[in-house]
Each structure stands twice: as C-alpha cells, then as structure tokens.
Amino acid sequence: MDIVSYMFSKSIFVGIVVGILSLYAISRQKSDLHTLLLTDLVECAMLVIIAAIGTDLAEALILPGLVVGLAEFLAVSEILVYRNEMRKSNLSNNKKLRLFEEFLAKEEVYVNSVNFNKMEIIYSAPKFIGFILVLYGAFLTGFTGGAIMASGLLFYLLSQGAIGNGVSLKDIKHSWEAISGFSGIMWAFWILLGFAGFFLFPEHYLFFLLIAGCALALKVGSKLGLIGSLRIRS
C-alpha cells in the first residue's frame, strides 16, 4: 500500500477536525474582524482535505482555490473597512480610501519635472511588445494563450492611456460593445461548434479541437482586454 492511500483517512480526519473547530469558533464570535481571521483557518482545512488526494488533480484544484480565496479576503476586508468608515463618518470627513494606501509612499513622487514626451521609446516600445505578446498568445491557443494575448492588449491600452493619447469616451463605448460582442461570438464557437462537433463527429476530432482552442484564446483575450479600455482617459 502506498503512502497516499495509507494516509488518506488520517488527512481527511485532521481536515474535518480543524474545519469543525474553526467553524465552531466562528459561530461563537461577535466581532467581524475576528470572523474574517478565522475564515483563513477554514481555508486551511479545505486545502488539507483537497491535498489528501495526493495527485496532480489535487494540485490543479488547489491553485485556483488559493487565488479565489485571496480575492475573497481582499473583497471582504475592503467591504468591512468601507462599512466601518461609513458607519463612523456619517458626521463629517469622508476622505477617499485607496487600495493598500498604508503600504504606498506618502510623499509626492519626483517625476513631474521629467519631460516624458521627448522619449522615443515610450511611443515605439508598447506597440512592439503588445504585438509580440499577441502573436505568442495566438501561437499558444487555449486559456494560456488567451491570457497572454490579453496581457499584450492590456499593456498596449494602458500605455496609450499613460501617454495621454487615449481614446475618447464615445469611442470606448463603441469599442466596448464591439469587443464584448466579439467575445460572445467566440464563446459560441468554442462551446457550440467546437465541443458539440467534438462529440458528434469524433472522427474529425482534430478540426474541432483546433476550432475550440482558437475560439477560446480569442474569447479570453478579448474579454480580458476590456479591462484595459477601462483605464483610458477620456
């Protein structure tokens, strides 16, 4: 008997014990902040139970769980802070909160005196880097390719916004609609044509696999590229 199946029941037992203990502590807790801290423990229990499978599948399940957990903690703590702020300052000063402002530099950055417009690289480099990233993403296909393509688009749009010759608000509205419509059409290609054809005509599997992979890449790429147009100045 190998070690994974030998330790499986013990790991599950430990995970369930930790989960029950921390959930019980949450149920007895009154402060919101302490509840948030104890939620971290529940996540530990969940990860132990998943890790007890001990295969590559467990690893593949843990990674998105961690990222989702991080996003969850960020959102919940932000809501907590914001609610406390609202509750406290109904009377007077309502200053805007920025994300992670405790860890940012307090002083004004000494950067305004440099004349950025004279730098040639600011105008030429983003196009080149964005082009290379989009090409490489198209070459990879699938989810990874889509993410790389999106990072290329995002980089290009963000750098255009930083230089100052961004697109106007009206253009953003049009391009937003266009990109999201394109993303929806690619979704239909991916699911309806790619997957359905994959199951209906298994003898032409390579053709449908390519359709599904390319459509997925274009869908993820265009969807994430939408984030870039959010930041462009009008």
């Binding site: 902040l33 948030l36 801290l37 971290d40 961690l66 990222v67 957990g69 991080l70 903690f73 960020l74 703590s77 907590l80 802070v81 406390n84 702020e85 992670f100 405790e102 860890f103």
Partner: peptide, 17 residues
C-alpha cells in the same frame, strides 16, 4: 506567495479598524 499577500490584506484591515 498567497499567504504573504493575505497577511498584507489582514494587516490593512486591522490598522483601519
């Protein structure tokens, strides 16, 4: 990696509180 980021998030929430 995630653990260190989570600590930043929590420290921020605690300081604000």
């Amino acid at each position: 990696a995630i653990n260190s980021i989570i600590i930043l998030v929590f420290v921020r929430a605690i300081i604000k509180n």
